[in-house]
């Protein structure tokens, strides 16, 4: 349990630093911005209580917002993603026998399952993020286009990180 806590704190710090220190500086093609920090919510242990997920989402989002100087935008998107997560997990859970401390990683649950789970989470997060950022529906196609490109890049980064991290952790 302690191990899980420390691991997640480190992951949290690393992801936030990676996000604000590297990815926010690199805006591909002007407006494509991968948001890798959502990986923290994705990788929370399966048995994390719902309220804790929400609180952690809130803390994560507000941390990013503090660095991005955009109070509330990342917070709202991340909280929404955190809210969706338990329902998503319970509907997608492949096996009955899952330890509460298990993180939904690619080795344990399989590539296909993980990609599906990640994709839904990233879509939920990114679309709500770009919606809040634009704050209007009039340029919906532009929002969705931006969201789509960012989703693709975030997914690529997540999959890459999965291979890197899980190998190292092993």
């Amino acid at each position: 349990m302690n191990n899980v806590l420390v691991k997640n704190i480190i992951l949290f710090v690393v992801l936030v630093l990676l996000q604000v220190g590297v990815l926010n500086q690199v805006q591909l093609g002007g407006f494509i911005n991968p948001y890798i920090y959502i990986l923290f919510i994705i990788l929370l242990p399966v048995g994390t209580p719902g309220w804790l997920t929400l609180v952690l989402s809130f803390v994560l989002g507000i941390s990013i917002d503090m660095f991005c100087n955009s109070p509330g935008i990342h917070t709202s998107a991340t909280v929404f993603a955190g809210f969706v997560r338990p329902y998503l997990l319970s509907s997608l859970m492949p096996r009955e026998t899952v330890e509460p401390t298990d993180t939904p990683n690619i080795r344990l649950f399989g590539t296909g399952w993980f990609l599906k789970y990640c994709l839904v989470m990233v879509i939920v997060h990114h679309v709500s993020l770009f919606m809040v950022e634009a704050f209007k529906f009039s340029s919906l196609h532009l929002i969705l286009w931006r969201a789509l490109l960012s989703i693709v890049f975030t997914m690529i980064l997540i999959v890459l990180s999965q291979f890197l991290f899980t190998r190292n952790n092993k």
Binding site: G50, W51, L54, V55, S57, F58, G61, D65, S70, P71, G72, I73, T75, S76, V79, F80, G82, F83, P86, V132, F135
Partner: peptide
Amino acid sequence: YVLLFILLESVSFVMVVRYNSYQ
């Protein structure tokens, strides 16, 4: 769970509207 979500989401939106000049 839902209430907490609504609370946190509301707080975020209040922040969005209050502190982001564009929104």
